[in-house]
Amino acid sequence: MKNNVRDRREHAGESQAELAVAVGVSRQSINAIERGRYDPSLELAFKLARHYECAIEDLFDPEFGE
């Protein structure tokens, strides 16, 4: 599943470490999500969306996958 977490994060001027702490995961997990190597749980997806004050669909797009 593709996502634009990296774009959002960079636009917000945050580091991976800051985002990781904000949503309660490791920096490696944020890195894995941004590189499309790990699809977060629904709970973490909601946390990310809430953090960037957007809808989950604005961050993740399953249509891009496969």
């Binding site: 945050e14 580091s15 470490a17 800051e18 990781a20 904000a22 920096r27």
Partner: peptide, 11 residues
């Protein structure tokens, strides 16, 4: 969001 230093310290 925590400051970069605080976030790094936590990690």
């Amino acid at each position: 969001t925590e400051t970069p230093t605080a976030a790094n310290q936590r990690l």
